[in-house]
Amino acid sequence: MITVGDLTKRFGSKLAVDHLGFEVRPGVVTGFLGPNGSGKSTTMRCMLELDRAESGTTLFDGRRFRDLDQPLHQVGALLDAGYVHPGRSGRNHLRWLAASNGLPRRRVDEVLELVGLTSVAGARVRTYSLGMKQRLGLAGVLLGDPTTVILDEPANGLDPEGIRWIRDVLTHLASQGRTVLVSSHQLSEIALMAHDLIVIGQGRLLEQGTVAEFVERHAERWVRVQSPGIFELQQPLEQHGATIEVIDDTTWHVRGSDSRTIGELAAARSVVLYELSPQTGSLEDAFLQVTAAAQEYRSGHVDGGA
């Protein structure tokens, strides 16, 4: 269990983390989301006391990070896969990490095997791809067999197989009762692996709950209707206050009404329906909806043509 309370961090005049508080429970993967510049990485660094917070505390199973004698046994963290000396081999990187917490050398070989880097363990890290560095970073996280795992953008640079592998690893770790907190911009990945969600914007907590609740609460819902006589439904649907988005001659997306009402309206007019399916927006839709007001950086519209 991670308990973050009233965490505040300022860089000069900029308030990066603003009285942030949340809990991460064991047994499930918890996604940590926020737009660029929202303070996710700073929060993670403050949790590990790498950045000095102005106020607030973070407790790992009730203990402050600085009070952990050999933290790799309790907290495995990967903040950036690039935090490796490029002239050192992958194995030697893990060896100093293991030695610092009294872990045996054989554990290094075990985690190298686990992440699939045994064959390149003796090569200098500067020859590694970003995906290989991510695997090396994850090996470092797993060294101490920790009860809590914290990862910042672990899927960056991974190929589809690697992304799937990391998803499987994290869900497996959570299923063993560990606490897993993972930040990512790949919302489809979070939707697949996370059960719980923490969403922040401009350093403040915007939402905390399950992914399902979050999507249910914030994502747009509509009904997809497909029928050869679909235009016969236009007037009754508009009388019920529904809005219609025409997809093609036989397909509409109907908002402001539910599938039961639409089905009854169709039946009353003997309109044949090929499809009547409720649709819900994605986690991405819900995320963009919630963080719209908390975007630090906004993109301009791209017009077609030069």
């Binding site: 660094r45 006391e49 990070f65 963290a77 950036d80 935090y83 990490l97």
Partner: peptide, 18 residues
């Protein structure tokens, strides 16, 4: 300085907070 330059100071202090 290489610890700061390559960022390894962070895993170092994450492994040993003192």
């Amino acid at each position: 300085t290489s610890e700061f330059g390559f960022g390894t100071i962070r895993p170092t202090f994450a492994a040993t907070p003192r």
